[in-house]
Every structure is written in structure tokens, then in C-alpha cells.
Nucleic acid binder design. Structure first.
Lengths: 236, 236
DNA sequence: CGTAGCATTGATTCTCTTCAAGAGGTGTGG
DNA sequence: CCACACCTCTTGAAGAGAATCAATGCTACG
């Protein structure tokens, strides 16, 4: 697979990683710095806490979870990432990783070495702009996640998470109302800041309300509008 | 006050906004783009949701809170900022503001116009690096905030918030164990995702435990080590 | 000095956690 | 291909913790 179909101009996710503002020559130059794409199997780490930071990564297929560890050893999952999304931005501008990224399933990625990316972005204003955009979008996403955790009821948190997840899927034209959640219930519970059992119960409740249908990791949304209402209900 | 003491080389916060990596000539060039510093009174907005994004801001004195609004109109305070910290990074790379920044007290700022900052950063690699650093630090701070909200007990959340707040104060050599929280209880409650009454009760409990002393907005930390223990206890 | 908003404290209700058990699914080895 | 074991997910009951409602104290500011 080495070297083949690594050019952004050939990639189906072209307009997602690097939007239309980029012309072909710019994309070609970006493609030149993209490294060998690693293939991660389920549970394998992309980077670990304490490792030196070398690159950021664009997901081609599969999914990634990122997490931080507190002093007491407890883990918090900070985010789940889909194909077309960029992972590792929290390390840009730092020498070491303070977080961990792990594949939730078989996952392929594009490697964007930091050094080359920053150098290139000085020459390509649209790339510089795009990196700023990616990073600030990440900040905004984190703010949404904060809102998610701040939401009073767990059902609202779950609804909010699901709604956001679907929106991102749709933005990348990856799914309609039926999709498969790549993460385990325990991961989801951790990310939402609640107990696993509560997540299960919340799923059941949303199912009883006729909003969605769940069977393990498979989810089908019946009433997207109602899901949005749930997501925004009972907030601080 | 216009034009006076706006040069980074003269500023007491010099090593905070722009660390030692910058030489005088770089600082001078940065200083040249710094705009008229607005003086905000308590409650006044620095930028609002929906406004076009023009600049990021470094706080010289005072404090700022940033917040987002959900579709249902509920507000979530995403962060509180101290002197020496940079506000507005979530808008870099975007045309419009999706958040609101408001002064918690009388506040002075340096204005860093985005256009000039991005242009200059293409010429000064250390500035580019520093902007990346600021943004990724913001992402990391948000991840810490996520952990804070994910913490089980409210006491742990409050302890975690206070510990982080003190660390930032100390990093800027602004305070020891006694300080004044600029935000109202309601703001703090909102940020921590709990009810105002619960914040009050948690303060009282920490006081009973001999960890700190509270009198309105004034806080004195007796046992910083114990506060850290509290902050990390009972996490997910 | 008085008023209005902010902060604390108390009592009750409700949600989520915890502990416990059972169901469903998956993967491995016979 | 089936059986068994393991693991994840779901469901139930009891208890703890926070939200809510309500009232009182406190502080700041005109």
C-alpha cells in the first residue's frame, strides 16, 4: 500500500480534510509531506502520553478515541473521531504528547509530520488558515462537549452526543439515520461522565420514547427532531 | 492611555504572552500590530455571538469569562481568563464568533488583529509556533475542564477548579495562597455544571475540612496538598 | 442608610450510583 | 459446527448525593 493513493487529489475525503479553497498545486504540495499511513488494529495506540510529538493524523477509515489520565490514574475520554477528522491537534506547538490516542477498530490514517506542515503553512496562507481553522474548530467542539457534560440529565447528554455524532457523520456524507457506534458502552459512559448502567438505561428510555432503536452498537434514529429537543432540554 | 506602554518589551507580562524565545526585534514587530487597548467595565462584552471575528486579545488586567449559547437559549460558561492569558482563540480561522466574551470586572486588554497576526506569523516562525502553542494549550485546558465536569462529586469539581485556578495564578506570579475569585457563584456553578446552592455547600464543606477559608469572593487556601487530593478523588 | 441582588442554609424530592444478577453476543477450542 | 467460557450489555432494587423549593443573612451600591 506504500505510496499508493496517498495523494489528497485522489482521496475521497479531499473536501473534508482540505476544503475547496485548496487548488491542485497546493494539494500536491501537501500530499508530498504525507507519510506512510499506519494501519492500526483495535486497541492499538496511535500516540501515548509522554511520547514526543511528531505529527498530526487524518483518519481515512475506522475511528479513534483520545484520552487523558489524571494524577490519580483515572482516565477521561476526551473525544471520538471519525474518518475525515484530524487527530492530535492538542499537541501542535508542544514537544510532548499529554494525551493518548487509540484505535476503536481497524483504522487507517494519513500522517502529517508537524515540522513539514508548519514550514509549508508559512508558504501556503490557505494551509495556515486551515490549520487555525482545524484547531479552533477543535476548541469549539470541546466547548460543545463541555455543554454536554454540563447538561443536567443523562438523557440530555446522550441525546446531545448522538445528535452531534450524526451531524458529523452527515457532514462527511458517511451515514443517514442508521449507523454503528464504534465505541463500547464503557467508553461512552466515561466520555459522558456517568455510569455504564445509566447509559444503558438512557438508551432504553430513548427507545421507549420512540426516538431511536438500539441493538448493541447499531443505532437507528426514528425521530431526529425529537432527539434534538431532548439534547437541548433541561440544560443549566 | 492611547499608544503608551503598549510595547511588549515594556510590559510586565512580556514573558507570559510571548515567552523568552522571542528576541527584542520580534517583540517590536509584534508590538507594532497591537491595537488600541479597550477598557471594559464589568459586564461589558468583548465580542458577541454572531459578530465578525477580527482579533484575539491578551488580558493586561482584570478578568474575562467566555460562554456559548445553546439552541434552547441556555448559556454555558466555557472558561474564565486571567491577566497574561489570551482570549478568542476559538475564533481564529473562522469569520464569525460563535461565543461571547465578557468582562467580570474592570478589564484592560491588548488587541491582536487576526490579519496582521497571521501575516506576521508567516515571517516569524517562533510566532507561528507560539500561536500553535497557545491554541493547543487551550485545547488541553478544555480537556482538563472536561475531566473536571466528569468528576463524580461536586466537591472534587470545585477543588479541581480551584487548584487549576491557583496554578495559573502562580504561573503568572499573581498570587500565593490568598486570592479573590472574580466570578459570581452563579457563574462558577454554571461552569461546574451544578446548582448555585451546591457550590455554596461545597465551599462550606471544604471550609469545615480545614482545606480553605472563604468569605464571599475572597479565598484563602490552608492546605494546598489536601486540595489536590480532593481534586483527584472520586473520579470516573 | 436603605434597598436590591447575591450568597448561605434548611427540608424535601428525584435522579443517578452502586451492588447484584441475568441476558445476549462473540470467539475459541474441541 | 457446536459447546463452552468470557465479556459486554441490560435490568432490578436500595441507597447516596444533588436539584429544587423556600427562607434568611449578607454585601454592595446608590
Amino acid at each position: 500500500m506504500a505510496g499508493t493513493s496517498l495523494r489528497c487529489t485522489d482521496c475521497g475525503l479531499q473536501n473534508i480534510c482540505f476544503p475547496p479553497a485548496f487548488d491542485d498545486s497546493a494539494l500536491s504540495r501537501i500530499s508530498e509531506v504525507i507519510g506512510q499511513p499506519p494501519l492500526l488494529s483495535k486497541g492499538q495506540a496511535l500516540y501515548q502520553i509522554g511520547q514526543p510529538h511528531h505529527a498530526i493524523y487524518a483518519i481515512r477509515s475506522g475511528s479513534i478515541k483520545t484520552s487523558i489520565i489524571q494524577l490519580d490514574g483515572s482516565e477521561l475520554i476526551t473525544g471520538f473521531y471519525q474518518p475525515g477528522e484530524v487527530v492530535g491537534l492538542e499537541n501542535l506547538g508542544h514537544t510532548d504528547c499529554t494525551s493518548r490516542a487509540e484505535a476503536l477498530e481497524k483504522t487507517t490514517l494519513c500522517v502529517l509530520p508537524t515540522n513539514q506542515l508548519t514550514t509549508l503553512s508559512r508558504q501556503l496562507p490557505e494551509l495556515q488558515q486551515h490549520i487555525f481553522n482545524l484547531m479552533s474548530t477543535e476548541i469549539r467542539a470541546d466547548h460543545q462537549r463541555l455543554h454536554l457534560l454540563g447538561a443536567r440529565s443523562v438523557e440530555a447528554r446522550l441525546a446531545s452526543f448522538l445528535y452531534g455524532w450524526i451531524q458529523r457523520l452527515e457532514h462527511r456524507k458517511l451515514a443517514g439515520s442508521s449507523f454503528r457506534l464504534p465505541m463500547a458502552r464503557a467508553d461512552l459512559a466515561n466520555h459522558l461522565g456517568v455510569a455504564v448502567e445509566t447509559v444503558s438505561r438512557s438508551f432504553s428510555r430513548l427507545e421507549q420514547l420512540g426516538i431511536l432503536q438500539v441493538s448493541g452498537k447499531a443505532v437507528h434514529i426514528h425521530d431526529s427532531a425529537q432527539l434534538l429537543v431532548m439534547a437541548n432540554a433541561q440544560c443549566a
